[in-house]
């Protein structure tokens, strides 16, 4: 279980209520012509109110599929084949779509990775924000929705919100669009926010601004956040907990400080080693991880990272058994037979 590192914070007033979102044994498969792609292979974690969890991994490690599985937005040929998703204790995994529609956007909201493409190009910003409000706002009138949309735009610091509300997405810059997407996701004060690569499409300065904004807004609302990214630098500033995902599984999960200080899983170590750090700039070429991620259609037996791992490449136990995600001391969990040995 994840211990929220900010449990003592004032904004966590109700720690007794348990996790707001608990995912357990989630498996998602996609049936393709080549075979079944096991995109998510038994992922479990829990998220306390106000907690911020980062899920870090390469493209194709199953991060986005995980996000969509939680939201119940996996469409054929994909399917969630096993596992539970508990929202405040209630399993929402097998709910019909109609019931999920009341949860999506109101209790779990999504920030899509690419703000450039996240908005309907032929509808005004105001109507798209209003739509988010009206879908859950009971009998909210168009007028009231518009007023609220302007307020939301102000909150995400869009200048001249009252005029810009009637603009179309192409009239907004990338950063402004991402603000709109954030406003849209937070419109109904969700309990959980899933932010899928929220800043990848933006330049570095805008990234920082948008992230700062997101930080303030979720802090005010005590929204729990799952931040999906491959950008470790982003995680360091923003999240309490990090889960490292590899080939559809979580391989290490621990607090941000612990992961940066002492990563246990060889993959997490490699990820950190490949990270660009200013204190190492002059020490020659950056290390990269040899090899490429395994084919999720034909996974090898044993540990999925074995082929690229400099610890377990030739070890018998790594070849035979896929290590489960198990607690290592008190600080976190790691899925490795030989945690931390690679560190030299």
């Amino acid at each position: 279980m994840t211990a929220s590192t900010r449990v003592e914070d004032a904004r966590c007033e109700r720690p007794d209520l348990g996790p707001v979102l608990a995912v357990d044994g989630l498996q998602t498969h996609f049936v393709t012509k080549r075979g079944t792609v096991e995109a998510v292979r038994g992922v479990g974690f829990a998220l306390d109110p106000g907690e911020r969890l980062a899920i870090v991994g390469e493209s194709g490690s199953g991060k986005s599929a995980l996000a969509l599985s939680i939201l119940g937005l996996i469409e054929p040929p994909g399917k969630v084949v096993a596992g539970t998703v508990r929202l405040a204790g209630q399993n929402i995994e097998h709910l019909p779509d109609r019931a999920m529609q009341r949860i999506r956007g109101r209790r779990i909201a999504l920030i899509y990775q690419d703000a450039m493409q996240a908005l309907d190009p032929v509808k005004t910003i105001g109507s798209q924000l209003g739509e988010a409000l009206r879908l859950h706002g009971g009998a909210l009138s168009r007028k009231a929705a518009r007023r609220r949309a302007i307020e939301l735009l102000r909150e995400v610091e869009v200048p001249k919100a009252a005029q810009r509300v009637d603009s179309y997405p192409h009239e907004y810059s990338g950063g402004m669009r991402q603000r709109v997407v954030i406003a849209m996701a937070l419109a109904n004060e969700p309990d959980v926010l899933i932010a899928d690569e929220p800043t990848t499409a933006l330049d570095v300065t805008t990234q920082a601004q948008v992230l700062g904004l997101l930080d303030r807004l979720v802090a005010e609302r005590r929204t729990a956040v799952i931040l999906i990214t491959h950008n470790l630098a982003l995680v360091a500033e923003f999240c309490d907990t990090i889960a490292v995902m590899y080939a559809g599984r979580l391989v290490e999960q621990t607090s941000t400080e612990r992961l940066f200080a002492a990563p246990q899983h060889p993959y997490a170590q490699a990820l950190l080693a490949a990270m660009l750090r200013s204190d190492r700039l002059e020490t020659g070429p950056l290390p990269s991880i040899p090899g490429s991620p395994p084919d999720l259609v034909a996974l090898p037996t044993g540990c999925a990272f074995r082929a690229r791992c400099h610890v377990g490449r030739s070890l018998a136990d790594c070849a035979a058994i896929d290590p489960p995600l198990a607690a290592v001391r008190e600080e976190g969990r790691v899925a490795c037979h030989h945690p931390s040995e690679a560190r030299t």
Binding site: L68, L71, L73, D97, R98, Q101, R102, I103, R104, G105, R106, A109, L110, Y112, Q113, D114, Q117, A118, L119, D120, P121, K123, E131, A132, L135, H136, V181, M184, A185
Partner: peptide, 22 residues
């Protein structure tokens, strides 16, 4: 395949409404 449809679904819109309105 347009991402904005996914976003619209993420807002809680039904599949049909997302299809017909967007």
């Amino acid at each position: 395949r347009e991402p904005f449809l996914l976003v619209v679904r993420g807002k809680g819109m039904s599949r049909w409404a997302a299809f017909s309105r967007h």
